[in-house]
Computed example of a mutant assay.
Amino acid sequence: MHTNTARNPRVSLKPRLVIADDHRMVAEGVQHILDEDFELLEIVADGEALIETVHRLQPDLVVADINMPRCNGMDALKRLRQAGMDTRFVFLTMHMEPALAVAALRAGARGYILKNSAGEDLRNAAQQVMSGGTYVTPALGARYISGQMTDMRSLTSKQLQVLRLVGSGLRSKQIALQLGLSVRTVEAHKYTMMQVLGVHSTLELVRRAEDLGLLF
């Protein structure tokens, strides 16, 4: 169930904001932090409501939790991107794993902020994202995450196909047959991906790919 919290129907020159979090106090805290610079359109409490609201209101920015009922924030973002919606997303979450931040950025998020460091961090993120940049909570090691994003962008679509089949448990000969490649080409792709992702065995490759969200 979504809640309309827009206080004034007049036209505003401020960027338009939707907040998605199933904890009302958190959502109101975000509203308070960003109220000076954004016009709040709605607060929603689950991912399905978020998808509907973004389609209906087309906000300039969404600040969303990842863990939400009905549809989590990451899946909501992916579905909106698949539908052609390019609304800027900032995730505000308790999850401190750098790999999850990488996966969020890969899915199309522009910011990743930890709830325990919101405040000024969230203001900075919102300003940077609205200026066309990205922002990751410094505690997560933005340089590391940026490097991982660069690494992943260097993988070709064919390599990603091979990687997902490796992750499903297929051997090189089976992958070669399924993709119409030679076994040597499949092995070459695996070797290249190991170099790019900094691992030394097929098992490590699969684990690293899982950590980075490449097998979804």
Rank of each mutant, 00 (worst) to 15 (best):
residue 116 N to C: 11
residue 80 L to N: 01
residue 128 Q to E: 15
residue 91 F to G: 01
residue 133 G to I: 04
residue 109 A to Y: 09
residue 114 L to A: 03
residue 117 S to Y: 15
residue 127 Q to I: 08
residue 89 F to K: 00
residue 86 D to R: 06
residue 124 N to F: 06
residue 89 F to R: 00
residue 96 M to R: 14
residue 85 M to F: 09
residue 106 R to M: 02
residue 135 Y to V: 01
residue 123 R to L: 15
residue 86 D to G: 06
residue 85 M to V: 14
residue 112 Y to L: 05
residue 89 F to Y: 03
residue 87 T to H: 06
residue 117 S to T: 11
residue 87 T to K: 02
residue 94 M to Y: 11
residue 109 A to S: 12
residue 117 S to F: 15
residue 87 T to M: 10
residue 110 R to K: 14
residue 110 R to W: 06
residue 90 V to A: 04
residue 129 V to C: 09
residue 123 R to W: 07
residue 124 N to S: 12
residue 117 S to N: 13
residue 90 V to S: 05
residue 114 L to G: 03
residue 108 G to T: 03
residue 112 Y to R: 05
residue 93 T to Q: 07
residue 99 A to K: 04
residue 100 L to S: 03
residue 130 M to S: 11
residue 113 I to E: 07
residue 94 M to S: 10
residue 102 V to N: 00
residue 92 L to S: 01
residue 83 A to M: 09
residue 127 Q to T: 12
residue 95 H to N: 13
residue 137 T to A: 10
residue 100 L to F: 02
residue 123 R to T: 10
residue 117 S to R: 14
residue 128 Q to L: 13
residue 88 R to Q: 12
residue 122 L to F: 09
residue 115 K to W: 07
residue 93 T to A: 08
residue 137 T to R: 01
residue 86 D to P: 05
residue 134 T to H: 08
residue 113 I to V: 15
residue 133 G to W: 05
residue 90 V to H: 02
residue 81 R to E: 07
residue 109 A to N: 07
residue 82 Q to A: 15
residue 129 V to I: 06
residue 120 E to L: 09
residue 136 V to I: 05
residue 126 A to Q: 08
residue 132 G to R: 01
residue 135 Y to H: 14
residue 102 V to H: 00
residue 89 F to V: 00
residue 111 G to C: 03
residue 91 F to W: 10
residue 106 R to K: 13
residue 96 M to G: 10
residue 82 Q to T: 08
residue 113 I to P: 00
residue 117 S to G: 11
residue 83 A to H: 09
residue 124 N to K: 13
residue 92 L to H: 09
residue 104 A to I: 04
residue 115 K to E: 11
residue 126 A to I: 07
residue 128 Q to R: 14
residue 130 M to Q: 13
residue 116 N to Q: 15
residue 81 R to T: 06
residue 130 M to K: 08
residue 132 G to C: 12
residue 84 G to M: 12
residue 90 V to Y: 06
